[in-house]
């Protein structure tokens, strides 16, 4: 089903454009042209963030700190997952895969991790990308609210999995 969504969007847009007698080929190339500028505008802020994120992740700080915690209703593997989730999409996916490999997708850790992955997004990445591209320097309370909402998602995921599955 989900494989048909993208082609579906494309065909609806094209048919509607034809129906409205638009110069659709020209519209497409004009739109695609704008991507060059966007790429140039996003590069500096992405570079800054990736430098910071990679230093933090590659140093192994997060896994070292959180290997000391463990509770009955909250498996230890969830901590690095929860900390990494707002920072880096690819490393969260690596942690998720590792949890599946070690404890299995139907374990308590596996289920909590699945729901964290499915119901939150990479806050810091999205923030850097969007604000960096349009040149916003003062982000006000954006990061605070973004991180609080990640925390709420994670806590909700832990509570709901414990209620419904275990």
């Amino acid at each position: 089903m989900s494989n048909l969504i993208l082609p579906g969007i494309v065909i609806i847009v094209i048919i509607y454009g034809l129906y409205k007698k638009r110069d659709i080929y020209n519209d497409f190339t004009n739109g695609a042209k704008q991507s060059f500028n966007m790429i140039f505008e996003m590069f500096p802020s992405m570079l800054a963030m990736i430098l910071g994120i990679n230093l933090l992740l590659d140093s192994g700080f997060i896994t070292k700190i959180f290997s000391i915690f463990s509770f009955k209703f909250l498996p230890v593997d969830i901590f690095p997952m929860a900390i990494l989730r707002p920072i880096s999409g690819s490393s969260t996916l690596a942690v998720l895969t590792n949890i599946f490999k070690v404890s299995g997708p139907d374990s308590l850790a596996g289920r909590i991790a699945s729901i964290i992955q499915g119901s939150t997004d990479t806050t810091i990445y999205v923030l850097t990308l969007y604000f960096g591209t349009i040149g916003i320097k003062k982000i006000k309370y954006a990061l605070t609210v973004g991180l609080i909402s990640d925390l709420i998602s994670i806590v909700t995921a832990i509570i709901l999995v414990n209620i419904f599955f275990h």
């Binding site: 494309v10 847009v13 509607y16 454009g17 129906y19 409205k20 519209d27 497409f28």
Partner: peptide, 16 residues
Amino acid sequence: IALWLGIMEIATASGL
């Protein structure tokens, strides 16, 4: 991004 900005431009211009 290039691909979707292209598709999006058609959708914007046609009023969709």
